[in-house]
Computed example of a mutant assay.
Amino acid sequence: MRKVGITGQAGFVGSHLYNTLQLYKDEFELVPFERNYFENKEQLDAFVSQCDTIVHLAAMNRHPDANVIYETNVGLVQTLLDSLRRTGAKPHTIFSSSTQEERDNLYGKSKKEGRAFLATWSQDTGAPVTGMVIPNVFGPFGKPFYNSVVATFCTQVARGEEPEIHVDGDLKLIYVGELVQEIINVIRKRTSEPNYIVAHTAEAKVSEILALLKNFKTVYQDKGEIPVLANNFELNLFNTYRCYMDIANHFPVKFTQHVDPRGAFVEVIRLGMGGQVSFSTTVPGVTRGNHFHTRKIERFAVIKGKALIQLRRIGTQEVLNFELSGEEPAYVDMPIWYTHNIKNIGEEDLYTIFWINEKYNPDDPDTYFENV
């Protein structure tokens, strides 16, 4: 069992890494970290002494004064190194740097110098260090106007605002889930590589990204249709966008019923892509689900009976509750990294239609059980 500590575990990449490592409980044990450890030598020393691997993600990305960014980031590395030297600990230390190293800015300079300091410590002690030079990262739950232009644009588009493009540059990107898997692979290898270049998995102009997000707003958020997703990048971008919507107030979405003397007709889902459609009945008082997905798109459509659908983002406590009735057929879509369930709260059988964007694969189900 490898003990892994993550500085910055509450941040954008850190929280994704922390939550993903929890899915490998037979392989990794997480050593909790809090930001105030950097201000307390005893707590920081206790932390580093427990770790077989430290993933150093704590850093400042934005500040009105660039000198503050530089001093903060270099200072965090120096504080970590001071603790490692005091304790004599030699964990495999993984440092997250950035492709901005080569740019003429103090953020990039702070990252390059931090990686160099750790490389020197590795040479002096023989402890393994991996300095990961990472392209632009995007994904769910990043802070707008801080972590990435994707987070900013997703927030603005979802709110109906018009983002501004200041420089229509060409971005080399990696999805946070892909980066997390890259970090996990590095943890497993435990090899020293001070200059580890992380390859980007997608490339797009800023204007192209914005056009895709606006299409998601029109097709999905406004019309309820699942858009055409031409490749893995567009799937990851769509799943990212969905997590920036006001989920609590967007769902449930009522269907349009077409009624005539024969009865009623409801279109459950309109697709730009394939997948799998299922149907279930649930007896009164029974709950289905209590699991989450990290990549799948899923829709629950209640067509008869009364249901309570609950969602909770992994790592948080707030539960979103949606009551649906077959008298007014409606649906709720499940965002990634939200554990969810559906319970029959009526007195008759509950009829539900489920759609998911990929066929079920028992060897790769992307289904992780956790009670809401």
Rank of each mutant, 00 (worst) to 15 (best):
E267T: 14
F251R: 13
V68Y: 07
S83G: 06
A204N: 03
E328G: 01
M132W: 11
V266P: 05
D26N: 14
T191M: 02
Q43F: 04
D104C: 07
S83L: 10
F322C: 04
I94H: 01
R270S: 15
F38L: 02
N236Y: 14
L118K: 07
V180E: 03
H293W: 08
F47V: 07
F47N: 01
L350P: 08
Y244W: 13
P135Q: 10
P32E: 00
L106I: 13
E182L: 09
E225M: 11
H16V: 14
A66H: 05
R115H: 12
M334D: 00
G5K: 10
Y241G: 09
I353L: 15
Y70N: 01
V129I: 15
T79E: 04
K25V: 04
L23R: 15
A204W: 04
V206W: 03
L350F: 09
Q276W: 14
D333N: 14
D260Y: 10
Q257N: 10
F279G: 00
R190W: 08
Y196V: 01
K111I: 14
V133D: 00
G8R: 11
I54T: 05
E71T: 14
T155N: 10
P227T: 02
D170L: 15
T120F: 07
N341K: 08
A202M: 12
T191L: 08
G14F: 10
S49V: 06
N236C: 13
G108F: 08
H56D: 00
N73K: 08
V219A: 05
P91T: 03
Y241E: 00
L57Q: 01
P194L: 03
V129C: 03
I269C: 02
Y37T: 00
I6A: 01
F216C: 02
N40A: 09
L311C: 04
A89M: 00
I309T: 14
H293G: 10
K223C: 03
G8Y: 09
I197W: 10
I345S: 06
G131H: 12
K3W: 06
E113L: 15
